[in-house]
Amino acid sequence: MELTTLLFYFFSLLTIGSAIFMVFSKNIVHAAFALMFTLLGVAALYVLLFADFIAATQILVYVGGILILILFGVMLTTKGFTDNLKTLTTNLRPVSVVMTLVAAGMIYVLLTTTWPVAEIAEPEGTITGLGTLLLKEYILPFQVTGVLLLVAIIGALLMATKVKHQQ
């Protein structure tokens, strides 16, 4: 077996395993750290798919940004330590049974479908192509995302400061 294959299985296991841990974890902070492992595993899978830039973005944005935001959210909305961080789980059994069935169905579909796979040579790096695409064909979505981000930041700031005024 090749090293990449081993790595693939390792990171798949890491991804799925910590995701399942999230479902059964009672502690929200533990769940958040499990999410970190999931995100890292996904980033590793991106690397295995030759998407290095996306992988780095995944780590930078998800792990370095969103996850920290989530952790801050947890810390700000609960009062401190372990005991207060328990979360309720409802309908866990029926939902997990149903979702297992759904997953089985999806996997069945995936396995029985013949995908039009084109085996391309390993790219040398995606960053040049991405840059060109972004500034040519995708210039409009790029700009729109920029505006969206700006709006989101302003909106979030506004909401956060509003909270202060109410207090």
Partner: peptide, 21 residues
């Protein structure tokens, strides 16, 4: 790798998480 410094900045953001951890 081509994304060199971008990767560096991304991976160092793990430091923050480990500190919180």
């Amino acid at each position: 790798i081509d994304i060199g410094v971008f990767y560096l900045l991304a991976i160092t953001s793990l430091l923050t998480i480990s500190v919180i951890m």
